[in-house]
Design a binder for these strands. Structure first.
Length: 562
RNA sequence: CGGGGCGUAGCGCAGUCCGGCUAGCGCACCUGCUUUGGGAGCAGGGGGUCGGAGGUUCAAAUCCUCUCGCCCCGACCA
């Protein structure tokens, strides 16, 4: 491809709205343009990258026996009403009516339509398993699109769905996807981790996410270098560091005067005690009534973990605290609130603590679980760096990551709702057992850039670069240089190498800067100086190492991909 | 949805507090000459409903009201 025939609008200055590194570079290097919040145009270079990623996706999905199909983006409300998600999902679903007044929506995922298809076409266990996938646009009216193409309202997604006759079959389909995902992300040149994840509103029992570590990521992942435990912080267990035993043994259960000292920090400073000697009591209002959450003073409440236990909740206001617990906020303790459900983090099972005395301006010392309060024990704290691994006890690490893929064991949630059943060997009707598996190609591209760039631009891995090599003639008005470059370019193309030739009539510096920005992994630089010696320069974008070769050797120097 | 920031030429910005010549600068773009291995120099030139609407005023990019859009933090994220 010739540079002058291709729309590659590079810009020197970074548009001010971009903050994520991948976003800045994709704009500057002419890969994407923004139409509106969360809506992006993929320019020729960007689209080539996505196409290459999608080709890898197809190869690996086909290799595990998955079959590509195409589903409507516009969907009738009925199937979504049958699974209940028409009502569960709120503003995030784009809804509209057709001219006949029928409720419709734009597909944000395709469990419903895939299951609908299965309900009509699958009859017998003999047809199973089936795995269907598509690479298609999804639409979600995101509350907050952000970070360039990392979180958009319209995005491409590879989603596949497995249908099995048994739990063992689902396990097998799940494992096939797991392995395929490892190959896909490795081929794309990503550093990634597979972590245990929340099943969320997808339902089902088992789920994993594939995470690419990056400071632009929206998720925190927790992992143990010693035993390999890896989980999204939304579900990660951890053992917070243990308390040092109080010198002088157990404190007696006693009141202490703490005038006007309400927060753990204030009381801690006043009593000269560290935060971990406190019980933090947080009153929340759930659908079924008030819940008192108890944590050690140095730990953070993990709202997602608690929500899984008690459903959606909100913080209680000051008047509600006084009303429900009979004491001003700031002096709450877990003792003696018989009518209120109490959920406590297990770290509080041992040791004695300081907490509110349930009367203004007083706290209690020597408060111990069971002796002074009872609770339901559940892990509700945020796992932090340095906490103990739940499996082996070693110190955990935490890092930010971009979710690039996920896999769910759905079970029969959708098949039961849509009556997608089959006859088993005994002739009995059973619901299909499903899994669903997603990958975001644009997120792969962005995550790769996040992980692979330098101050001058993008550094593409060979497998997903928009071109294999860029031929850069310098001094374009020298016919010999121009001719030599054209010959090299023609040879490369004939040998099946995807090449871009920068045939623009521009100064050397501009072309070289643009080449680094665009990030094609190999550059062949043709200049007067070297050409006089019968040589051209082959340069590696990543290492910046270059060597001089003869123009006729370029095809050999660049092995064709794969 | 809560909090914050920003809308002035294609891009990056100044000017806005404290109203007042024809709205400016850099990059990009066009013409000419010179230059040509890491974002060239000189000279000339084109390009603006100052996000939009209403208001105050002799006079509004600037003050007031409303509104739209974009970004960031949080909530949300099937």
């Amino acid at each position: 491809m010739r540079f002058t025939k291709m729309l590659i609008p590079t810009v020197r200055e970074t548009p001010s709205e971009a903050t994520a590194e991948s976003h800045k570079l994709m704009l500057r290097a002419g890969y994407v343009r923004q139409l509106a919040a969360g809506l992006y145009i993929y320019l020729p270079l960007g689209w080539r990258v996505l196409s290459r990623i999608n080709r890898i996706l197809r190869e690996e999905m086909d290799a595990i026996g998955a079959q590509e199909v195409s589903m409507p983006v516009l969907q009738p409300a009925e199937v979504w009403q049958q699974t209940g998600r028409w009502f569960d999902i709120k503003e995030e679903m784009f809804r509209l009516k057709d001219r006949g007044g029928r409720d419709m929506c734009l597909g944000m995922t395709h469990e419903e339509t895939m299951t609908w298809l299965a309900s009509r076409e699958i009859r017998s266990y003999r047809q199973l398993p089936q795995v269907w996938y598509q690479i298609q646009t999804k639409l979600r009216d995101e509350a907050r699109p952000k970070s360039g193409i990392l979180r958009t309202r319209e995005f491409l997604m590879k989603d596949s769905y497995s249908f099995d006759a048994s739990a063992e079959g689902l396990e097998k389909s799940y494992k096939l996807h797991e392995d395929a995902y490892h190959r896909i992300f490795a081929r794309c040149g990503l550093k990634f981790r597979q972590v245990e994840s929340d099943t969320g509103m997808m339902g089902g029992a088992v789920a994993h996410e594939f995470m690419a570590p990056s400071p632009s990521g929206e998720d925190d992942i927790v992992f143990c270098a010693a035993c390999g435990y890896q989980a999204n912080s939304e579900i990660a267990d951890s053992a917070p560091r243990a308390l040092k035993p109080k010198p002088g043994g157990e404190e007696p259960y006693s009141d202490v005067h703490t005038p006007e000292k309400r927060t753990v920090e204030e009381v801690g400073r006043f009593l000269k005690e560290p935060a971990e000697r406190f019980i933090k009591s947080i009153l929340l209002i759930a659908a079924e009534g008030p819940v008192l959450a108890l944590l050690r003073g140095d730990l953070q409440l993990h709202e997602k973990k608690l929500q899984r236990l008690i459903g959606p909740f909100r913080a209680a206001g000051k008047p509600e605290v006084a009303d429900i617990l009979g004491v001003e906020a700031g002096f709450i303790g877990p003792m003696g609130h018989d009518g209120v459900k109490i959920v406590a983090d297990p770290v509080l099972k041992t040791g004695s603590y300081i907490t509110g005395a349930n009367r203004p301006h007083y706290h209690k010392r020597g408060v111990r679980a069971d002796a002074h309060f009872r609770a339901d024990w559940h892990d509700i704290h945020v796992a932090a760096k340095g906490d103990g691994c739940p499996r082996c006890g070693s110190a955990l690490a935490v890092e930010k990551a971009i979710e690039i893929g996920n896999i769910f064991q759905l079970g029969t949630k959708y098949s039961a709702a849509l009556n997608a059943v089959f006859l088993n060997e005994s002739g009995n009707e059973e619901p299909l057992i499903m899994g669903s598996y997603g990958i975001g190609p644009a997120r792969i591209a962005a995550a790769v850039i996040e992980q692979s760039h330098d101050k001058d631009g993008i550094i593409w891995p060979e497998a997903i670069a928009p071109f294999d090599v860029e031929v850069i003639p310098l001094a374009g008005d020298d016919p010999e240089v121009e001719n030599a470059a054209r010959v090299i370019y023609g040879e490369l193309v004939r040998n099946g190498i995807e090449a871009l030739i920068d045939d623009r009539d521009l100064r050397a510096g501009v072309k070289l800067k643009d080449a680094d920005l665009i990030g094609i992994p190999k550059q062949i630089i043709v200049g007067q100086r070297n050409l006089r010696e019968g040589l051209v320069e082959l340069k590696d974008r990543r290492t910046r190492e270059s060597r001089l070769i003869r123009p006729g050797e370029t095809q050999d120097a660049l092995k064709p991909r794969e």
